[in-house]
């Protein structure tokens, strides 16, 4: 086992952290397992609830928006559900990661573990939930006889982009949350505004030009677009849109990772 430690080692901490994470992969797997287990052990409905939850949500939103706002979208429940899955992954992972790091930083004061492990494990946990939530989507698609397009083969790429973007964002926001208690609440408010600025329950083309321009500044929009294209529309996304979301997610990941590994030594110094 490679066990040397040099506080002044040459090279980049951001890259060393990757190796450290690999060294602690058993711990990473355990943390993910345990959070999945505790989630499903506690409630009686357990896993059924996880599947039911997006379905009920979709039902409510479908009724609310298609009946009240009266815009016509083909197979609207599927449109909504795709949007909700991606959004829930992003919103739940970031929120959960903030709380996990606040817990984790108390552990970091007592013992060494790779500092990114908490955020990475939350993203891992989110991915498991995301995959489970694909089951009700498939059910609805079957019921509504929505076509399964070959574009679905691109789904892993879209998921990777989504995970990278979320991880990068999470690393930045959760660092702030360790330092300032009000970040968690402020972010909750930000999230609800962000939700409506993302074309989840409405298609972007119903927006007036000016507002659509604003929405296009929203990075989540580009990642979501990818999912909508390959699942809902069944169309191959344009090269540009893949490129844009690829750049956005890699950039966010790299900046977040760099920012966090640069700051992470300070976490244990927090009194």
């Amino acid at each position: 086992m490679h066990n040397e430690y040099d506080s002044d080692a040459a090279g980049f901490p951001a890259i060393r952290e990757l190796f450290e994470l690999w060294r602690y992969r058993d711990l990473l797997r355990l943390i993910v397992n345990n959070s999945v287990k505790t989630r499903y052990k506690r409630s009686v409905l357990g896993i059924i609830w996880t599947l039911l939850n997006p379905l009920l949500n979709t039902l409510v939103l479908t009724i609310a928006f298609s009946q009240i706002l009266r815009f016509q979208v083909y197979n609207y429940p599927i449109y909504i559900l795709v949007g909700l899955l991606v959004w829930n992954f992003f919103a739940q992972t970031t929120t959960h990661a903030m709380n996990t790091l606040i817990w984790g930083s108390s552990l970091l004061k007592r013992i060494y573990v790779p500092r990114t492990i908490f955020s990475v494990s939350v993203v891992g946990n989110g991915l498991i939930n995301f995959c489970l939530a694909l089951i009700p989507l498939v059910l609805i698609m079957l019921v509504m006889k929505h076509p399964f397009s070959p574009t679905l083969t691109l789904l892993p790429v879209a998921i990777i982009f989504m995970a990278m973007f979320t991880l990068g964002f999470t690393l930045m926001i959760s660092t702030l949350a360790v330092y300032f208690v009000d970040v968690v609440e402020m972010f909750a408010i930000l999230l609800s505004a962000w939700f409506y600025l993302t074309p989840i329950i409405y298609p972007i083309n119903i927006l007036p030009e000016k507002i659509a321009e604003i929405v296009k500044l929203n990075p989540v929009y580009y990642i979501l677009q990818l999912f909508q294209s390959i699942i809902y529309l069944g169309e191959w996304p344009s090269k540009e849109s893949v490129l844009i979301s690829g750049i956005i997610s890699s950039f966010t990941f790299l900046v977040g990772w760099w920012f966090f590994t640069k700051r992470s030594d300070e976490l244990a110094y927090r009194i």
Binding site: N3, Y5, D6, D265
Partner: peptide, 28 residues
């Protein structure tokens, strides 16, 4: 134990280190 990185200076350790500082760290 690698919990705190020195503000200045350098520490190197070689081998597996068992800290009996905080027993049961991370127990759930």
């Amino acid at each position: 134990a690698r919990v705190l990185k020195p503000t200045t200076g350098r520490i190197r350790t070689f081998g597996h280190i068992a800290p009996l500082l905080e027993l049961g760290a991370g127990f759930d």
